[in-house]
Computed example of a mutant assay.
Amino acid sequence: MLEYKSVKDSQVSITELMLPSHSNFGGKVHGGHILNLMDQIAFACASKHSQRYCVTASVNRVDFLNPIDVGELVTLRASINYTGKTSMVVGVRVDSENITTGEKRHCNSSYFTMVAKDEQGKSVPVPGLLVTDKQGIRRFARSKYRKLEARERDTKFESYTFNAEQYLKELKSENCKVELKF
C-alpha cells in the first residue's frame, strides 16, 4: 500500500436517472434516496483510497439546496478531503441535470467521515493524502478544523459538565418555555 495517495487516485463519480420509485409524496426525489447514494459513493471513494472495507462514522451537515425532479440525471462526485490515522473525510457533491433543457443545479454538498476496517472489524491505518494544489490545502484545513470544532462542541455540551444556568438567558429569545422542576 502506498504511503500517500493523491485526491485523483480515489475520486469517483456516478450518474443515475431519477425514477418515480425514488419520489416522495410531494413528487420530488426523496432526500433519503439521495443520502443513500451519497453514503454509497463516500464508501466507494474511501475504500478506493484505503484499499479496505470502510464504514461511515459520521456525516457533517446535510443541506438540501435544490429539489430534484423525477426524470432528471443526478451526478454525485466524491473525493478525499482529509486523512487522519484511520479515518478519511470524503467530500460529496450532488448535481442534478434536466435532460430536456440541460439546466444543471447544485443540490447538495456534504462531508462523510469514513473509517477503514480490517477483517476483524478493527480500525486500520490509511494512506495519507498527497496535497498538490491550494484547493487541496483549503479542503484539508477546512476538514481538520471542522473536526476540531465538532469535538469542542460535543465536549462543551456533555451532560456531566453542562451548566444550564449559563444558557437560560439565551433561551428567553427562543421559541421555548422553560419550566424547571427540581
Rank of each mutant, 00 (worst) to 15 (best):
E149Q: 15
T56H: 10
H49W: 00
E165S: 15
M38Q: 05
T155N: 09
L17F: 09
S159H: 11
S110Q: 08
G27Y: 02
V124E: 02
A42H: 05
T56M: 13
Q135D: 13
I137R: 08
Q120E: 12
D69K: 13
H30N: 15
T101Y: 06
E158R: 15
G91A: 10
V178Q: 06
V12Y: 00
Q11V: 04
M114C: 10
P125Q: 04
E119W: 03
A116I: 06
V92R: 05
K104P: 04
F140W: 14
T75K: 15
S109C: 09
S13N: 10
C176M: 11
V178I: 15
Q166T: 11
D69Q: 13
N60H: 14
V90I: 15
S96E: 04
K181W: 07
E170L: 15
F25V: 09
R138S: 05
K104W: 05
H22V: 12
D154N: 07
K172I: 08
A164P: 01
H30D: 12
S23W: 01
T56R: 12
E72V: 07
N66Q: 15
S58G: 06
R153W: 08
V29R: 03
G27Q: 07
L171R: 03
T155G: 01
F162C: 06
Q135S: 14
A44Q: 02
S109Q: 14
M88N: 02
T113K: 06
R77M: 11
D118E: 11
L2M: 07
K134Y: 04
K177E: 07
N98S: 14
A141I: 13
M88W: 01
A141W: 04
Y167F: 15
S23E: 07
M114R: 07
M88S: 04
N98C: 09
R77P: 00
P127V: 05
S143M: 03
E179P: 01
A57S: 11
T101W: 08
G26E: 01
S159Q: 03
L168K: 15
P20H: 08
I68Y: 02
T75H: 03
E158C: 05
L19R: 08
K5A: 06
G31Q: 08
V7S: 07
S109F: 06
H33P: 01
S6N: 09
N60G: 10
D39C: 06
S13D: 12
T86Y: 02
T83V: 03
I80R: 00
Y145I: 10
R61L: 12
L180K: 12
G32P: 05
N175W: 08
A141P: 00
E72D: 11
D154A: 14
Y4F: 15
V90H: 01
T132G: 04
K147E: 13
G31S: 12
T155V: 14
K122Q: 13
K5V: 03
E179F: 04
V70Y: 03
L148Q: 14
A44C: 04
S79G: 03
E16K: 14
Q135I: 12
V70K: 05
E103K: 15
N66M: 09
K172W: 02
T83L: 03
S79P: 00
N163H: 10
N24Q: 09
I80L: 02
K8L: 04
I80N: 01
N81S: 10
E152S: 04
S96Q: 10
E152L: 14
